[in-house]
Design a binder for these strands. Structure first.
Length: 280
DNA sequence: GAGTTTGAAACT
DNA sequence: CAGTTTCAAACTC
């Protein structure tokens, strides 16, 4: 079973206007993948806008230049045929297993491997296209994701560039903050559903979370066993509720314990004064 | 291991 | 841009 050929206009658009693909990126072909279900079809990366389907003049314009992204650099620096992603060490994630995607073919940002720019190797996923055998589909999906969000493949947590970063880190402060911020509503007990908490950073002014307790001065975060801690009212980063305290936090990572100590300063989280230190 | 909860991503 | 749906990870039992 094979998918219908993608619209010609889209093929041309991708081939001609994609600024992220290396020059030697292979021409797009009909993908030898099975026909998606209705659900998958709706969400699949093969979905293209009416403009693309019709090849409207609007879409024939060259894409506006955008800042180089992490994946831009990676794509342009290495040939796509090499297993560049899977060889990349993931310094932020030490999962025992990789993804378990079922419906996204690992070509959506739902997929952690795809999101991190890795091929799926040794994953529990089904119908996976995030591998060497589906390079075309993969690069197509990367393009789609980048068009939607040029920063889609950028690290979600930015390291602090604040003063004394290294020395602060040495002192055990949490480093950086989530670039987009979270929008958590119910994980008041600091669970890994929250991307900030998962990344071992405090919620910042970027977050729009409610009932947030993932902030520096929360003592509950100190005392909570492993990952789970009690919490308060609202995102203190946005309300200016940044107090003075020291937090020692042991995350319940599978293979490593993570010790975080947030030292306190008079600076707000805005100033990126929090830092992280990871202990083996 | 199955079912539930959760929030990001995708979509309308 | 807000609301809704889909998705997969995290979590609970």
């Amino acid at each position: 079973m094979s998918l219908p050929s993608p619209p010609l206009a889209k093929k041309l658009q991708v081939q001609q206007s994609s600024s992220i693909l290396p020059q030697d990126f292979p021409k797009l072909e009909v993908l030898p993948v099975e026909k998606p279900t209705k659900l998958q079809e709706r969400r699949s990366p093969q979905h293209v806008s009416p403009e693309l389907k019709q090849g409207s003049p609007k879409m024939e314009r060259p894409l506006l230049p955008r800042p180089a992204t992490f994946i831009d650099v990676m794509l342009s620096s290495q040939k796509p045929s090499s297993d560049m992603w899977s060889e990349t060490k993931d310094v932020t994630l030490t999962r025992k297993t990789n993804c378990s995607c079922k419906y996204s073919k690992c070509l959506k940002l739902y997929c952690e491997c795809f999101q991190k720019g890795r091929y799926c190797i040794g994953c529990n996923c089904t119908n996976c296209c995030n591998n060497v055998n589906h390079e075309n589909a993969r690069h197509d999906a990367i393009n789609v994701a980048l068009e939607r969000n040029p920063a889609a493949f950028m690290p979600k947590v930015s390291n602090s560039t604040a003063h004394n970063c290294e020395s602060k880190a040495a002192e055990g402060d949490i480093v950086g903050k989530h670039t987009k911020g979270c929008k958590c509503k119910r994980t008041e007990y600091l669970k890994k559903y929250c991307e900030c908490f998962k990344a071992s950073v405090f919620c910042s002014e970027n977050c729009r979370c409610t009932g947030c307790k993932n902030f520096k001065s929360n003592e509950d975060r100190i005392s909570q066993k492993n990952t789970v801690h009690a919490h308060n009212v609202q995102n203190p980063a946005s309300s200016g509720m940044v107090g003075q305290s020291v937090i020692i936090f042991h995350a319940a990572e599978n293979d490593s314990s993570l010790s975080l100590a947030a030292s306190v300063s008079d600076h707000s989280i805005n100033n990126n004064t929090s830092h992280l230190i990871q202990v083996e």
